[in-house]
Amino acid sequence: MFRTAAAAARILRVPVLLVLLGLTVSGCGINNIPSYEEQAKAKWSEVQNQYQRRSDLIPNLVETVKGYARQEREVLEAVTAARSRATAIQATPELVNDPEAFKRFQEAQAQLTGALGRLLAVVEKYPDLKSNQNFLALQAQLEGTENRIAVARRDYIEAVRAYNTELRTFPGVIWASTLYRAQKPMETFTVAEDVRRRPDVKF
């Protein structure tokens, strides 16, 4: 009787120790790096979603403007070209670990922002277009999308900051140099696009 109880206690000791060890280690932030990384990835996919949403609005917008302002061909073509350049960049999740590709992505999107800004500025010359139902709805959606992009970028920048900081500071740096050696810092936006600027248009 006594012997079986002692044996049971000995057998139980191993899992109990394992659980304790697990709790202690997770208290040291062993999970922080993967969970911060997942958060940053989720924020990144939101950024992509919103850029995609903007991209999807553009063909309709270009068509509507064309109906009223066919002579603004240059501006319209610039938007279409900037859109296809931006969509040509494969927005894969790996993009965030590749500084060169990330820079290209960011620049292409910034160019598209600029082209769209010029298009909306040119529209001011066409009162009929400005009061067109379809255009008003598209304009509101585009404005809303630009806002969502700004918010998504802000959230992403914040999430990457947390992740990159964890990789480089104690105690995260211990895990980064042992368990998670494959984990690389993520790229982040350097141009603050949410700072509103008026596009300069020369007539």
Partner: peptide, 18 residues
């Protein structure tokens, strides 16, 4: 920072509206 996307804590907004 520790809530991911739509399912996180209290009410949240991503810049929708006008």
């Amino acid at each position: 920072s520790d809530s991911g996307g739509f399912s996180g804590g209290g009410g949240d907004s991503g810049g929708g509206g006008a």
